[in-house]
Design a protein around this nucleic acid. Structure first.
Length: 804
DNA sequence: CACGCTCTGCCTGCG
DNA sequence: GCAGAGCGTG
């Protein structure tokens, strides 16, 4: 290599490094490496999304400029000197365009994520960074990407392009049907379990025959393979796919139709996959099939955050990436920008105990944090009380909005005690998870109507609504009609429509025909009123509202949910120029509740650790740190399971930016039984010097009149265990908020303060009391101070006096 | 076919 | 401890 060329390359690199100086060296390398296979091991809070966005930006602007080692043709020494002089001056940015190489078109770039939330974030940030090109870049979830391909290619596999996407409820119904058809006892073959085995098989790319072969000699597996075979057959008949099929059928397109495969391979020249540790075998195969031509594949992930093994994700995909691509470049992002060193050291100490990992140690420059706090509570109720009062304390002492706080738990059930405690003390909160909006019964009913209107071939959803509201079509009649449909090889809906022409249907024929007429009528209504009025029309023409009133206690709530469905359809119609019913149903199938998580809302967040992945909060409480709960009892048996739980604990801890508290209850009700569990082994893996452990006893003991002590370590410790201490009688969980946390004070008497009256504060001066709000045994006072403006203070903490 | 009773079986859960 | 499923009866 010539001397000139070396000078040129060196200068070029320095220019780019200066342009991307806001990134650390590892991040820069990840951004500049656009060609060939790249594995980015991105620790929690290491600026992964930023890298992804910057990388796309760099790619679209400069192509493979950074690593290209060619000298422009006819480049001279003089030009080199001009460039170097320019670099030394202020307008060195002028050099950037000169280094640019041919770039891909935006639509040749594909970015795939797992959740809608992540996809939306990427979409927004791309929009902000590259307003011109963002809308052309293909970004979205695996499922959305696959649906897009399948809508165009499904006919090759025998499906219609308007296939329905079945959710868990639909698939469960279909499995139950298949079990019945094969005379299998649903008690021995629980639909849920069968479904999960089928799903696992699909995720590993095993068809019914392969599953049967694998389970030869195993009676149960052989039977499940039979169910699987029938299930797939029926899905096809119903023109429906389950979520796993979306992936697998796309794989089939790429494997079985070379011309299609070739088209997509050339189309997506640059592919990026986020959260690669969450991919299953089918998704991994899809990615490899898609990128086998150009091999410009960048996968980003963190083996330490792989927490979805139970649903088929295999960490091996990310762990073995550099073995499959032996020329892959591996970049580790270990600098964390989120958490304090105390939090990171604790999290590192826990995850270190895992054997099967690439090995990463996060570090930070935030050294000014507080230790991780460990709180012991007598039972789950005391635990909730502690968290509640601690949040109230911190909100006041550190002037934090409630949106700073998150309570993370292992199981959804644990939310109950927090929900009731928070509600009682007026702490605003929001619970995420549990069931999706679109999974609610009334919403499922309505979307089933919509779906039948849209895709008449779908018998599962048709059967869901055929007698709902009750219209005298019993199970026997439906079965007869279905037998007939099978015999005649026509959709069930067609049998209903022409029911009166089949003598075998007897008395129910008229009712079936009336039902079909209703659906046909609704189809015409859809033509007339469009998406905006169709929900109302269904409710009206089916008498659904009356049915709800008759059968449900909380029918008002349910009607309101239906209203919400109607307005979300209207919103969909306005947002999309060519809005169709099919498009809306597709959206409904592919969204989740977490998607509308709003960090701005002034509420405490309650969610499972799983749901919290990818989020961050200034203050995090990880609750229920007990062996048997976290790690879960099932995980205590197998090493692999336990390691997954440990990764889960790692994810939980690394959500915290400033404060991390771990809580543990000595006693707790599980499955209706009081359990006494030892403290979580994950807590014991954290070295003592990183943990701030308060007194042994529950903090909820009646307060003495020694107001204002702040040291919890010596004095209060003793007071609880000392037998002659009169007030240490029995911890009473009654008093809310008070006496909890570090800086407790005696209860202030606020009855003398009148709204509109004048008050005085030692630092803020005089002001007018605007509002008093009861809050967890304390009173929140909103005061308009004369000099410093309006402030919200808790009566028990702020030294407020009346003006005489 | 609707109801009420008993029985069971219980992590996590994207799309 | 509670919810959902399944079963039997009016």
């Amino acid at each position: 290599m010539s001397h000139l060329s070396q000078r040129y390359i060196q200068l070029k690199k320095r220019v780019f490094e200066r342009e991307f100086a806001h990134l650390n060296p590892q991040q820069q390398q990840a951004v500049f490496t656009v060609d060939g296979p790249l594995l980015v091991l991105a620790g929690a809070g290491s600026g992964k999304t930023t890298v992804l966005i910057e990388r796309i930006g760099f790619l679209l602007q400069y192509g493979n400029a950074y690593f290209d080692d060619r000298l422009p043709a006819g480049f001279t020494e003089t030009e080199m000197e001009t460039m170097e002089a320019c670099f030394a001056g202020d307008d060195w940015r002028r050099l950037l365009p000169q280094f640019a190489l041919p770039t891909p078109r935006p639509y040749e770039v594909l970015a795939i994520t797992f959740t809608n939330k992540a996809a939306a974030e990427i979409g927004q940030r791309l929009e902000a960074k590259l307003p011109e090109q963002a809308h052309e870049i293909v970004s979205g979830t695996f499922h959305r990407f696959c649906v897009k391909i399948l809508r165009r290619t499904a006919s090759l596999l025998g499906y219609g392009s308007d296939f329905t996407i079945y959710d868990t409820d639909d698939t469960k119904r279909l499995i139950t049907e298949c079990l019945k058809a094969l005379s299998l006892d649903p008690k021995q073959y629980a639909p849920r379990a069968v479904l999960s085995e089928i799903s696992n098989a699909k995720n590993e790319m095993l068809g019914p025959d392969e599953l049967a072969k694998k389970g030869v000699g195993n009676f149960r597996t052989e039977k499940i393979a039979d169910v699987y075979r029938l299930y797939q057959q029926r899905l096809l008949q119903n023109n429906a796919m389950d979520f796993d099929d979306l992936i697998w059928n796309t794989v089939r397109i790429l494997q079985e139709f070379p011309d299609r495969a070739d088209y997509y391979r050339r189309r997506f020249r640059y592919v990026m996959i986020d959260e690669y540790q969450d991919t299953n075998t089918a998704q991994d195969l899809l990615v490899h099939l898609l990128t086998s031509h150009y091999r410009n594949l960048c996968v980003v992930g963190d083996d330490d955050q792989s927490i979805y093994r139970f649903r088929g994700a295999t960490v091996e995909n990310i762990l073995g990436f550099d073995q499959i691509f032996c020329d892959a470049k591996v970049i580790r992002l270990e600098r964390n920008y989120r958490s304090t060193s105390q939090i990171l050291d604790a999290a590192n100490a826990v995850i270190r105990n895992n054997v099967g990992r690439k090995g990463k140690e996060l570090w930070t420059e935030k050294k000014d944090g507080v230790p991780v706090h460990l709180q012991t509570a007598e039972d789950d109720r005391a635990e909730a009380l502690y968290v509640c009062s601690q949040i109230q304390n911190l909100a006041i002492l550190e002037k934090r909005p409630f949106s700073d706080f998150a309570v993370l738990y292992r199981t959804n059930k644990q939310s109950l005690s927090f929900e009731s405690t928070f509600a009682r003390s007026g702490l605003p909160y929001r619970i995420f998870g549990g069931h999706r909006f679109y999974d609610r019964k009334e919403i499922k009913d309505l979307t089933s109507y919509l779906s039948v209107i849209h895709n008449g071939g779908d018998a599962v959803r048709l059967k869901r609504i055929i007698n709902l509201p009750k219209r005298g079509i019993g199970e026997a009649s439906v079965e007869k009609a279905q037998k007939l449909a099978e015999y005649l090889q026509i959709p069930l809906f067609e049998v209903c429509r022409n029911a009166t022409t089949y003598p075998g249907l007897g008395a129910s024929a008229a009712k079936l025909a009336a039902f079909a007429a209703l659906i046909d009528d609704l189809r015409r209504t859809l033509e007339e009123v469009g998406l905006n009025g169709i929900v109302d029309a269904i409710v009206e023409k089916t008498g659904y509202a009356a049915y709800l009133k008759e059968t449900e206690d909380n029918w008002q709530d349910k009607l309101q949910n239906i209203e919400e469905l109607a307005s979300s359809m209207t919103a969909y119609a306005t947002e999309h120029e060519e809005a169709t019913l099919g498009g809306f149903l597709e959206d409904a199938a592919l969204v989740s509740d977490l998607d509308d998580y709003n960090a701005q809302a002034e509420t405490v967040t309650l969610m499972t650790v799983h749901a919290a992945k990818g989020l961050e909060f200034p203050c995090v409480f990880v609750v229920g740190m007990e062996d048997g709960l976290f790690p879960s009892g099932a995980a205590l048996l197998e090493r692999e399971e336990l390691e997954e739980e440990r990764r889960l604990a790692y994810v939980a801890m690394t959500r915290a930016k400033e404060r991390l508290e771990l809580t543990y209850a000595k006693r707790r009700m599980i499955h209706g039984q009081t359990m006494f569990s030892p403290i979580s082994r994950f807590v014991t893996e954290i070295p003592d010097e990183l943990l701030d452990k308060p007194e042994e006893e529950s903090p909820f003991r009646p307060q003495t009149s020694f107001g204002g002590y702040t040291s919890r370590t010596s004095y209060s410790n003793r007071s609880a265990s000392s037998p002659h201490h009169l007030t240490a009688a029995k911890p009473t969980p009654k008093p809310m908020g008070m006496g909890a946390g570090p800086a407790s004070k005696p209860k202030a008497d606020v009855s003398g303060f009148l709204v509109g009256g004048r008050v005085k504060h030692p630092t803020f001066g005089e002001g007018t009391l605007l509002k008093k709000t009861e809050m967890g045994g304390d009173v929140l006072m909103e005061i308009a101070f004369d000099t410093v403006g309006t402030k919200r203070l808790m009566a028990n903490y702020a030294r407020i006096t009346k003006c005489e």
